[in-house]
Simulated assay, not measured.
Amino acid sequence: MIEQFKEAVNNGLSTPHKNLPSKYFYDKKGDALFVKIMGLPEYYLTRAEHDIFKNQTSNIITSLKLEKDTYFELIELGAGNGTKTKELLKLLSKEGYNFDYLPVDISQNALDNLENNLKTELPFVSVKTKQGDYFEVLESLRHSKHPKVILFLGSNIGNMNDAIASIFMQNLSANLNLGDKLFLGVDLIKSEDIVLPAYNDSQGVTAAFNLNLLDRINKELDADFNRNNFIHTPTYNEKEGIAKSYITSTINQDVHIKAINKTFSFIKNEKIHLEISRKYNDEILNNIITNTQFNIKNKLSDSNNYFANYILEIE
């Protein structure tokens, strides 16, 4: 893991347009800060999707065309703590649907916590955790002829650019069978006054979350970043529907990373790109799935029309 981290930091800071992969946000401190972000008043994404799961649970089941007498596998990619999914699991269990819940995550610790939590909260739900890479797990499940419903929530697909998202959806499509469904959560294109504060909150939690990546490099790779010489600078282009997160150098400076044995120079106002957050509409999603077997069947939106869960089916 540390070698991959070193390689990613070296490669990202050695390019003319410096960048660092956002997956390295999530150390222990980063995890805690992101949990805090999800509860911020400006961060509408989690609340909006939870609104759909809480208030349209029956509509979700109807839209997915689930039948009580037909067994299916409910597979969630990147399940996390399962807060939203529990609303669906609760109703499926209560109404006697025949299914297994298969949460997939790279973190065994996250899966263990979720499984233990569900044993207490929803003891009648059959949980079969799957640790590993999304596509490795899906390939192992592909030979099962049981109907599958894939949950990919939280607008996680929005952290991919369109080219990568297209490849992701092609791979996902290739690992499913005719009639299998995808319940896909995406953030919708909105005005800047709604979107930008979600990535630049008034309490500075998102700034601390992003700048913590520099602290992690200092700690794990023995670097000498001075985070006081960098600021969090998010942007949002409403026409494109893409938010971007950057860390910007406020002065001309050099940073040495001992683990890489290399010094990196930054000029004043030079940016390190960290993450994108693509916002969607029907046209954009249709373009993303052009070379797949997916077809859009339905769409559920929250009460503010900020977020949508699309139902896609393999045909």
Score class of each variant (00 low, 15 high):
S14Y: 08
G82K: 08
L20T: 00
D187W: 00
K84Y: 10
K299I: 11
Q4D: 15
Y236L: 06
N177H: 13
K258L: 14
L20V: 00
Y306S: 02
V104N: 02
Y280K: 02
Y26C: 05
N171G: 04
I314T: 02
V186W: 00
T250E: 14
R227N: 10
G96F: 10
N309D: 15
K271R: 15
E7I: 09
L274I: 12
I167L: 13
K190V: 08
A165R: 00
L89R: 04
L88Q: 04
Y280R: 00
P123T: 07
D187H: 02
F25G: 01
K84E: 12
K244Q: 14
K279I: 08
P21Q: 04
A110M: 13
H232K: 03
A207L: 03
N98D: 15
S140M: 10
A174R: 09
K219S: 15
T250N: 07
I284R: 14
G12Y: 02
S126L: 13
N117T: 12
K68M: 06
L13Q: 05
I288S: 04
P41H: 03
T120W: 00
T46A: 01
I157C: 04
Q253L: 15
R47C: 00
H232M: 07
N287G: 10
L274R: 00
N10A: 10
E136Q: 15
S144D: 14
I106M: 12
S249V: 11
Y310P: 04
H232V: 05
Q170E: 15
S58K: 15
L138D: 06
F53N: 02
K54S: 14
I194Y: 12
D254S: 15
Y24D: 00
S144M: 10
Y306V: 01
E270I: 09
N298S: 13
E7S: 15
A223D: 07
E139L: 08
A8K: 09
M38D: 01
N109M: 09
F225P: 09
G154F: 09
D187R: 02
